[in-house]
Design a protein around this nucleic acid. Sequence first.
DNA 1: TTCGCTGTGTTAGAATTTAACACACATCTG
DNA 2: CAGATGTGTGTTAAATTCTAACACAGCGAA
Lengths: 254, 254
Amino acid sequence: MSSERRAAILELLQTKPFLSLHELEERFPDVSGMTLRRDIEYFEKQGEAIKVRGGARSMKFITTSMEDAFSLRLKENVDGKERVARRALSLLETGRSIFLDSGTTVLRLAELMPNDRITVTTTGLNIAIELMKKEMPIVNIVGGMINRDNITVSGNQAISFIESINIDLAFIVPSGISLEDGLTCGNYIECELKKLVVHKARKVILLTDRSKLNKSLPYTFCSIDDIDCIVSDGELPEDMAKRASAAGITVLTA
Amino acid sequence: MSSERRAAILELLQTKPFLSLHELEERFPDVSGMTLRRDIEYFEKQGEAIKVRGGARSMKFITTSMEDAFSLRLKENVDGKERVARRALSLLETGRSIFLDSGTTVLRLAELMPNDRITVTTTGLNIAIELMKKEMPIVNIVGGMINRDNITVSGNQAISFIESINIDLAFIVPSGISLEDGLTCGNYIECELKKLVVHKARKVILLTDRSKLNKSLPYTFCSIDDIDCIVSDGELPEDMAKRASAAGITVLTA
DNA sequence: TTCGCTGTGTTAGAATTTAACACACATCTG
DNA sequence: CAGATGTGTGTTAAATTCTAACACAGCGAA
């Protein structure tokens, strides 16, 4: 039957950016090349792929110009970010007001977010877009100027927005973490915003991966002691773990 | 020289979803097909196009899942919207602060916007995203709750944002226009926002197409007399034209 | 001048794609 | 049940497109 084969091809299309006909012919030796061609044609009509010479390109991997600026960064330690995002998911509770920082880890979290009745406020344009694809969360975006580098909104208006809302849970991603300097980022105005978020949130959850540990950037927005929970993609260094436990911070390793 | 040709091809790629080699050969008879092939290859590397049998598909028209929710609506009277957007383009002046309403016509305007030094404030998430792809305009997005139906931000925060800024030019798109009810839309809170924008803007430009004329929706945000300029995709009905000229409104038909 | 680079043209062969027809099998329909 | 219809598939040959390799001109740098 054709549907099984097509399902399998669709699977492949989710995995690889390019599927060659030769590949397909090897994978499905009992049907003719013509059939596989027709399958590709079918997926092209479905919008899952684009027929190109020699095979098909998967839509999943075709990103519009600006998105791939991210996917570049997204490729660093994808696996770690994925695990952190999934672990963080379990901290969500329905009916809450949560804040989502911007960043690729959080983007992944947004993609995975269940269709629960929660209210999300975010500074990340792409995160807002991602959440809109779902049915449920009420999505707020803070107002202000958009930073092209990281698709993040910040500024006075953003600050006054945060001042006006209540936050149960804040998921924060710093650019650097160190014992001495605490959580740091490289942009003053965004730093101010994060500072306020940390101050206002009832509970602050820090999402991090290996690459950020023991790094320090110009602006500090809070100390490690201000955090309530750390989700990391691996064990924390000993000194940091000690500090965390002294401060009563829950540490989750994903 | 190659750069002019490439610039022209890039233009074409912005216009059409598919460019055939034959088309290119007709358009550029003084270079060989091989050269045009190489141009396509070049644009594929640039991420502007995808090479397919017989030509190239423009990236611009390859949409990721959520975007095509819009392209559905975008298909209504595309031609009219396109003309209105292009006509509106000529009203832009550098160094100004402009407001862009949300809507497909404006989205097209955003896509066409030159790389000038202007400041844009918008309620449309997708419009902000579109503008970010460019180098130049400073992009502000108002804060507030996002309406899934039209990817628009509104709410108290949005209003306080608008209150805090100065607007030279506001490009407004109502859902309905009629002599009696003026400019109307179907959402109370968005209506309030538009009302404020019209009030604050030094100059209000109304973008409209045939489909909106003589329609009336629940909430009015301003009267026709409050407008400074109307850009329409065809002649206005006589009574409306009369009213406009009496009010000293510039009418541009595209 | 000479070198090397970039942009281009030409060609022939390779590879892919298309289109048309054929067949098997399942499912309706009278 | 016979016949009609439709879907999925295979086969073939021709048409089209693509690639690769080499050639050459123009231009700036050494």
